[in-house]
Amino acid sequence: MIDLQVEALAQALLAKGWRAVTAESCTGGGVAHQLTALAGSSDWLEGGFVTYSNAMKQRLLGVPETVFTGPGAVSQECVEAMARGALQHSDAQISVAISGIAGPGGGTPDKPVGTVWFAWASTGGDLKSLCHRFNGDRQTVRDQAVVAAISGMLRMVQN
């Protein structure tokens, strides 16, 4: 299924003449890995940022420090800043950002394990974000997050 989504995303990006960029935390480059598994991805994939630490999110993507002292790394504010920062630091026209708690530890009552925030941004000014709560072990949460990230990119490109 994910292969079909990646192929559809590739065709949609090529049709628009767009390139994509990823900004990943809890998925650790999993989205970029899936995208580059398709031959010819260099025609539509700009690259990716794996920004696991808050310092890297600040340094590479320009996420304001106030995000980390306020809502935190797993928040709408963080992923939206990551998505915008990925566009600003690349030549891509669409980005996806992911930050979450894959587990097994790190969860809180407000943000349990499986909480993953996503944001998708385009150079045209579109910005969408949402939070999923996935079930399963660490790898299952990460796998589900990769699929959701790619699905969201496809929806944004097709609109």
Rank of each mutant, 00 (worst) to 15 (best):
A8K: 00
A15W: 00
A86G: 10
T69P: 01
G70W: 04
G125I: 05
G124C: 11
Q144P: 02
P104I: 13
G29R: 04
T51W: 05
T51L: 07
G72E: 10
A81G: 13
A83H: 03
I98W: 01
V21K: 01
A121H: 04
T69Y: 02
C26M: 11
G103M: 08
Q93G: 14
D3V: 10
Q11K: 03
V63S: 12
L130N: 13
G114A: 11
G124I: 11
S129C: 12
A39V: 07
A145Q: 01
T51V: 12
G62Y: 09
R138S: 13
P71H: 12
T22R: 06
N159P: 05
V147Q: 08
A86E: 07
D126L: 06
A39C: 03
W18A: 15
A92M: 03
G114E: 11
G72I: 13
A149G: 07
V67M: 08
G125C: 08
S99L: 03
V50H: 07
L38P: 07
G28T: 04
L45W: 11
G107Q: 01
P109K: 03
D91K: 06
D126Q: 09
I98Q: 05
V6T: 08
F49I: 14
F68P: 02
K128S: 15
A23C: 04
G40N: 05
R138L: 10
G72P: 10
R155Q: 12
S53Y: 01
L38Q: 08
S75K: 00
S99C: 05
V50K: 02
T123F: 04
V116E: 13
L13N: 05
Q144A: 13
